[in-house]
Design a binder for these strands. Structure first.
Lengths: 332, 332
DNA sequence: CTGAAAGCGCTTACAG
DNA sequence: CTGAAAGCGCTTACAG
């Protein structure tokens, strides 16, 4: 910067003024300065600027993992929304490990991020008090279980998604549904139940089969097999995420049941592979990217208006995409 | 820091000494300082330290996307390897867009990252001169096409993977193979051809079907259909990545050909869903995480020993995982 | 082993 | 509109 100033015949304060644009400078002076910048290939040193201004133009993002389509899209959309405003992304995958999250939090704090977005129920805000030095806003997104309440949250109406799936099955005449449920998916199941309750039907606890988070496709296959064995009269399977639904499709095939003729399968999450499975999967599609975009905008808003209270927007509505894996209840 | 010093009755230089451990301090003094740090909840300000030392303990990672299993694993493994040494990760997904990459590069430069890892052929180092201010080491990984040569690269022996697949098919007696090839997968195809050439057979260009990068599963289905239509006597399909192989499996089913009885299918990439497809996919497994780990270690080595030349390690060998989608050539 | 001083590269009031 | 000065929170030789 000093070099640029010398070359342009001004002081570095003037250079700073043209770079930041905070103070107007005479056009001809500005031209000289810009010329010097180009000739010298000067790039402002953001770490020095950060020390002076207190803003790093960097935000942290916590996700449990990046290996699922859902979180991969959250990451990409967050990065895009950030980039549009000149921010960069410090990525932290927590792997649902509290110790790891704590370490990352300390790292982000000492690096003075301007804000932090925590995506996915991670049980962090409850257990994880922010370090003393943490003076940045925090926003939560993709939150499904009880809300911590300490932070604004941009999330999806997961219960509505379940309700859409349930109503769809009811409209097709299904009365006996089994559920393959991942952990923390209580709202999705509650929505399905509400749709059945709307018609005076109950989905008993015995029809809900829980699958551990890490079980993956194999877990879906096993759970679907168990569900069909437990109640052979089941005519529909509702999976609380698409990996489980894909497993259900395979288990149905293995059991010699044709989808959707003998059995309907409805998924949840709109995994990009869903439309291409055979049969193409009917399922609940989530406004993932929209959610991530809004969350970043909320966070950046809080960054630039420190004191002001930020309102939590209403949960975003999912949609039901009807494809080929669901059909009318088979006639007994 | 000043507060800590005051509370411990020393100067801040002494506090710095105990925090960095660079200069030994008397045990009792150190104890007083540590106590003050704990009481005040002091966290060192890394941006100030960075300005003073020139090191940010942050590295940039360029990936084309984060929505494929391959790159998701690269990101997670890189983050792990970085975290072990106290580094944080600035993630940039380039989406194979030069303009976007250029912008990110400028951002990383002005943020003074300590190093940059570029994963995946991105045609960047050729077209993208580093900004003048960029004084950090760059390492490439997962590079498959011609190497830029300007930077060390940690990659995989992609040609060997193709050879393993080809030898496997030859051992099963296959003579007519069709190839579904993604762009930039020339080495994988070359390896397959070499295996056939080892036995005096040729894989003609007409048997190689190119699929655009963005075509996904639908592209694989279409290409496989085209391949089977072009040469109905084909007994084996080699796909240069698993999404294409999954498409091939579906196209085979649609065409009424049973895998592996009528047709063998071999994939490449070891997508986690491969073992769970029906039939389970035979394919080439890549040492993705090992590669990412080594790349970060190489990069961090270059960071801490600026002048020294870094050697490019030999490409990592893939492995063939034989599952159920490949079998003996059907008898004519 | 500890303290006083300079400096990292910027920005920000504050005079002129 | 431009220049001189102080300061952001650290580290680093350099004396004592």
């Amino acid at each position: 910067m000093q070099d640029v100033a010398r070359r342009a015949g001004v002081t570095k304060q003037t250079v700073s003024n043209v770079v930041t644009g905070r103070v107007a400078v005479r056009p001809e002076t500005e031209a000289r300065v810009r010329a010097a910048i180009d000739e010298l290939g000067y790039t402002p040193n953001l770490v020095a600027r950060s020390l002076a201004t207190g803003s790093t133009r960097t935000v942290g993002l916590f996700v449990p993992t990046v290996t699922t389509a859902f979180y991969a899209h959250v990451v990409e959309e967050a990065e895009d929304a950030l980039g549009r405003q000149g921010y960069h992304l410090l990525l932290c995958t927590t792997r649902r490990d509290g110790g790891r999250a704590r370490q990352h939090l300390a790292g982000l704090t000492s690096r003075s991020v301007d804000g932090l977005l925590i995506a996915g129920d991670q049980d962090l805000p409850g257990r994880l008090p922010l370090p003393a030095g943490a003076r940045f806003p925090v926003v939560l997104c993709a939150w499904e279980t009880e809300l911590p309440g300490r932070f604004p949250v941009v999330t999806i109406d997961y219960e509505l998604g379940g309700h859409l799936a349930g109503r769809h099955l009811r409209e097709l005449g299904h009365e006996r549904v089994a559920v393959l449920a991942g952990p923390a998916h209580g709202r999705r199941v509650a929505g399905l139940r509400r749709a059945f309750a709307d018609d005076g039907l109950t989905v008993p606890d015995s029809a809900v089969h829980l699958v551990p988070a890490s079980a993956g496709l194999a877990g879906g296959i096993a759970a679907a097999r168990a569900a069909l064995a437990a109640d052979p009269d089941t005519t529909a399977l509702f999976a609380t995420h698409d990996v489980l639904a894909a497993g259900a499709l395979q288990a149905a095939r293995d059991a010699g049941r044709s989808v959707p003729r003998d059995l309907s399968v409805v998924g949840y999450d709109d995994d990009p592979a869903g439309p291409l499975s055979r049969p193409a999967l009917t399922g609940v599609a989530l406004p993932t990217r929209e959610m991530a975009r809004q969350a970043i905008e909320l966070l950046l808003g809080a960054v630039s208006a420190p004191g002001e209270p930020v309102g939590t927007p209403r949960p975003l509505p999912p949609e039901l995409i009807v494809r080929d894996s669901s059909g009318p209840v088979p006639r007994a």
